[in-house]
Design a binder for these strands. Structure first.
Lengths: 252, 252
DNA sequence: CGATTAATTGAAGGAGATCAATCCGGGTGG
DNA sequence: CCACCCGGATTGATCTCCTTCAATTAATCG
């Protein structure tokens, strides 16, 4: 029914991954689940490289990533790109656009992507009738913000090798939560250019750092897949502490 | 009544600056204003350098900055510090802590600071009874997120001089909104070390970049004050576009 | 008015950028 | 089915922006 986009996912079920993410943080009642599922009005697919939402455009619906990989990114006049966050299936990627009414950055498909759109009218109704669900949606935007803060720290103060390792650790946990990581690693169909633009480095230097990670037996990024060889030492090299992902399950 | 902290501000009136900020983005009804004012339960003052909220601590109230300057910051094991955002009076600095229940970073007073605390119970009541005000509070957390995204871009891709200039531009507009900037500039009682930790640079290099800005006749940072000599050219040097501050007044 | 912290300036070093060339894999058209 | 093409991956050589180290000056404060 829903157009297939990328790879085996919690696709088909537009709100499935989102519910996994929310339920990792708090209870979601069957009624709330139903409200959420009903809120997804249309499903669209985007080719890799397409811009899903452009900065500054007035919005009346928000995009929920169902399958594929998407990035929040800004471009500078000289053509440089900075990726603020990678999004994995289940991320309510521009829920930010609901209170903000327009985004300050682009939302771009890095792989073929399936997007579910939720009209702002439906979100507004949720804020009026479902206070707990509202808090959970609010929460999900703030977890994005937390991930972005960790990016500031990485880009601002961590050495190149640490940045890359940290990114690989973060993505592993985020994929794991939605059942898209196995023991050995996870699919990550990105280019080294994408990684560079997220890490604030050049592709050349990312390549060298990936080589170091490989040679040290920590992790391999190749053919759109991250293979983790030594999770403990990778986390150590990344100075990785997952606290910022706010995985605690508690009443919100 | 309220203990005075730093300098002439919209102090005295704990929710005053916050209302200025919200009303720049949407209408706030008298009733909503009252609810907001009533929500501020206690007022405390902090010395410069004190940590107001520590990362990871379970929270049951949120901090609203009434007067002074505050930073969201993270520290690395080797002692490096990264400031994710400077906060000006009226910023509901850890409203994030309401859905999140704990912060992933520290909140530290950079100057003597006056903080109003809002119990989470009061915020919860707002989410249950005041959907529009809820959306405005949600919005305010997302404007913080937008400011932090712009920081990612600065730290990730902009040259040192541009970063510093950009920071000075941003703070000018944010101070202006709450009436704390005059034609010539604004008070900014920070050290060059603070600026360095926000810009992801060393204090030495910040010093050199400030000198360049001064010598080019763009702006001077000295004695805790930013004097702007040529606003147009400063913005140009900063590649500054204020869109990310979401100043549009519209229904949310 | 010492003592401590921040600001300033110079000199040298290094992490990452830039420039450039080659390799590789997959798509594509003849 | 293969030659070609093209974007990404890889590697080397060089350069540069910012860091690091160090020393001096200025400002702030008990």
């Amino acid at each position: 029914m829903a157009a297939e986009a990328a790879r085996p996912d919690c696709a088909d079920d537009p709100a499935g991954c989102l519910l996994l993410k929310l339920r990792a943080r708090d209870e979601v009642s069957p009624r709330e689940e139903e409200v959420l599922r009903d809120a997804v009005a249309e499903i669209e697919t985007f080719r890799a490289g397409k811009t899903i939402i452009r900065a500054g455009v007035q919005l009346n619906r928000s995009a929920l990533l169902v399958a594929g990989l998407v990035a929040r990114q800004k471009d500078l006049a000289d053509g440089q790109r900075q990726i603020m966050e990678f999004h994995v299936p289940g991320d309510f990627t521009d829920l930010h656009g609901f209170p903000l009414k327009s985004l300050d950055h682009d939302l771009a498909a890095l792989t073929p992507a399936t997007i579910g759109f939720v009209p702002h009218a439906a979100l507004r109704r949720i804020t009026e009738e479902e206070p707990h669900l509202t808090r959970l949606l609010w929460l999900s935007t703030l977890i994005d913000a937390a991930i972005q803060r960790e990016r500031i720290l990485s880009v601002g103060r961590r050495a190149a090798l640490v940045r890359i390792a940290h990114l690989l650790c973060e993505l592993r946990l985020r994929f794991e939560l939605i059942g898209l990581a196995d023991a050995g690693g996870y699919q990550l169909p990105l280019t080294q250019i994408d990684l560079a633009d997220a890490a604030g480095l050049t592709p050349v230097h990312v390549n060298r750092m990936l080589r170091v990670l490989r040679e040290r037996g920590l992790a391999t990024f190749r053919g759109g897949r991250v293979t983790i060889h030594d999770w403990a030492r990778l986390q150590e090299a990344a100075e990785f502490d997952p606290a910022y992902l706010h995985f605690q399950h508690q009443p919100r």
